Simulated assay, not measured.
Amino acid sequence: MREAPAPVEGIRLSGIGDEAGSTLLEQIRALELVGWHTIELRTVDGIPLADLSDRHFERVAEALSDARMSTVCLDSRIANWGRPITGDLEADLTELRTLARRCGQVGTRYVRIMSYPNDGLDDADWRDEALRRLRILAAEAEQSGLVLLHENCAGWAGRDGSRMLQMLETVGGPALRLLFDMGNGVEYEYDGYELLRQIVDHVAHVHVKDARGPASAAVYTLPGDGECRVADCLRLLVARGYSGVWSVEPHLRVRPHEGLAGAGHERLGPFVTYARRLEELIRNEVARPVGGAPR
């Protein structure tokens, strides 16, 4: 097994498993090929984690344990692009309760969420309802010892740093933090690096993604080849004391929101190439940066 370097003290490298393969064995194999021992789970066998049977998820937990693979986060559908603000909150609460049990089985406290795309409400009502729901979800998470990680993607607070900070202040408590995806700005038409500057002190988890526009036809690239200032984002995180996980989400062969899911052999190679490019970028541009953090 190839051993990955430790390019930045305290940082672990990971990947969203289903970007590398549909089956759990494919996902584990991809990470082992690059010498990484941490995985982020979204689907297994094409099935969202909360929809797996109890026995199926038990097998997932057993396989991860056997492979000595730690789990950093479970990516939920809670408040995501498929669940608008007018939808049934109970569906999200049910998913959260299921994932709370499953977090315990794989040893993570983190659950990825979003903040509800609008569905015909005016801005004030959208804000109020999104924050109301997030307060309920965060209270449920806190009771279970979980931390909800809000991604800068779909929803009321998905694209605006000031809204993210307002969300954190309004919801309060230890059960809501931020997940920063450095590639989402291209598709959603905002400057991801400038967003990170606003929220960096509240970021608990990171997705590495790169792309170039236009938004209507975004092209996802290897890290460093797009417009998302990947190295600058990573340097800023290090400079501000971030010490969590950098998890790759290449989007080269898998894009759930577009219904794109390549076959196993179409995912593995690009995923490994992506991971190794990230290691190279970190060694050359992040671990020993010249001139300190970017401005």
Rank of each mutant, 00 (worst) to 15 (best):
W126E: 05
R112S: 01
G172P: 04
Y220T: 00
Y220I: 04
Y190M: 01
E227Y: 14
L195T: 06
E169V: 01
L137Q: 04
L121M: 13
E169Y: 01
V111W: 07
A217M: 12
P117T: 00
V200K: 13
V147A: 02
W126S: 00
V186Q: 01
R177T: 09
G173P: 05
N152M: 14
E140A: 04
A231R: 04
R132M: 09
M164Q: 03
L134M: 08
R235A: 09
L134E: 05
D123M: 13
S162M: 06
R159S: 13
G161A: 00
N152V: 15
A175T: 05
E187L: 08
Q198M: 03
N118I: 11
Y116A: 12
V147P: 09
G145I: 13
A154N: 15
L134W: 02
R109D: 13
L121F: 14
L131P: 06
Y193C: 15
P174A: 10
E142D: 10
V186S: 00
L234I: 06
N152P: 08
G158D: 00
S216Y: 15
R133I: 11
A211P: 08
E189P: 09
R229C: 02
L222G: 03
A154T: 15
P223H: 06
P174M: 02
L134D: 05
R133W: 07
L137N: 03
D123N: 13
A204R: 05
G158E: 03
E227S: 14
T108P: 01
L146I: 07
D128V: 02
P174I: 01
E140T: 05
N184R: 01
G192C: 05
V219D: 00
T170I: 00
D232T: 08
A138I: 08
L131W: 00
P214W: 08
L121I: 02
K209A: 09
D125Q: 10
G173W: 10
L179C: 03
D122R: 11
E151P: 06
R177Q: 15
R212H: 15
A138F: 00
E187Y: 14
A231L: 09
Y190A: 06
Q166G: 05
Y110H: 14
R229N: 09
L195R: 03
L131M: 02
A130F: 07
Q166T: 11
L146M: 03
D125Y: 06
E227N: 14
R133P: 06
V186P: 02
C153K: 14
G183Q: 05
